[in-house]
């Protein structure tokens, strides 16, 4: 009885509950085929990493999902409805932060809400909450040039969180910060995935990072890009964050991914 229930739940999860599903997407930049017939599902409430060598089309795929780029072919569904442009159900975290240099932290965090026409006092309340959540309390009045790289990325993250989108699209969000900050961010990200009921799509270059933070890793191969493999580190979520990096499953998956990517790195 118990077992059948669990099984039923499992099939529901895998079959219908995809926050985002990409099917048969191709993208050409003139002569360059960046993506070719790519199909990939992103389960709700989970973090999926896109991992692959430079230039294989990770950013392109992310921007197509965001509605910033139009695919040459194929279809993207977010919560079951097709993507025609940017929407309130998705929020983007940019690799280079994309903060307004002339605006304070609080205005930057509230900027997504400002563009959506939320009243000033209301959006600042929401912004304050997320500024606290990402650990920037006391810097509300600061300007981006007064912050470190890591703090700027927190502002970008708080901005994406404050619009309360279902899907967070993150393009190499941790690549511009130092290694210690990066590790801290990875731990914070795990907490975020556990607490916020959101779907995360996460682009990274780092195999270790992908294995550490992901529920599902999609390995993309170079142009024209397709999904070479999907890996689900099943046992890692239950482990203590501090010991994941010493876990044998973690180490095995890192090795396995490296073995499959090695041939593409000259």
């Amino acid at each position: 009885m118990l077992q059948t229930n669990a099984l039923a739940e499992d099939t529901v999860l895998t079959q219908t509950d995809n926050a985002v599903s990409v099917s048969g997407v191709s993208k050409n930049y003139g002569e360059v085929e960046a993506l070719k017939n790519l199909t990939l599902d992103f389960p709700r409430g989970q973090l999926t990493s896109l991992l692959g060598p430079s230039g294989c089309g990770k950013t392109t795929l992310l921007k197509i999902i965001a509605g910033l780029l139009e695919p040459t072919e194929g279809k993207i569904l977010v919560n079951g409805s097709p993507v025609t442009g940017p929407g309130e159900d998705r929020a983007f975290v940019f690799q280079d932060f994309a903060l307004l240099p002339w605006a304070s932290v609080i205005r930057n965090v509230a900027f997504g809400l400002e563009l959506r026409g939320v009243a000033k006092s209301e959006r600042e309340d929401i912004a304050n909450k997320y500024i606290k959540e990402v650990g920037l309390e006391g810097f509300e009045k600061s300007f981006p040039h007064e912050l470190s790289g890591g703090m700027r990325q927190r502002v970008g993250l708080a901005r994406a969180l404050s619009v309360d989108a279902d899907v967070l699209l993150m393009d190499e969000p941790f690549s511009a910060v130092d290694e210690q900050t990066r590790r801290k961010f990875q731990e914070d990200l795990l907490a975020l995935v556990a607490n916020e009921n959101k779907t995360f799509i996460f682009v990274t270059h780092s195999i270790e990072e992908a294995v550490y933070v992901s529920d599902q890793i999609a390995i993309l191969l170079p142009r024209p890009s397709r999904v070479a493999d999907i890996i689900r580190p099943t046992g890692l979520r239950e482990k203590d964050v501090a010991s994941i990096r010493r876990d044998s499953e973690y180490l095995d998956i890192v090795d396995e991914i490296w073995a499959s990517l090695k041939s593409y790195v000259e």
Partner: peptide, 21 residues
């Protein structure tokens, strides 16, 4: 900066809002 424009677009900025903000 291209990504500022993309940022505004991704949060649904109207052309007028993108221009003035």
């Amino acid at each position: 900066n291209r990504s500022l424009v993309e940022m505004a677009t991704s949060f649904g900025a109207s052309p007028w809002a993108a221009f003035t903000k």
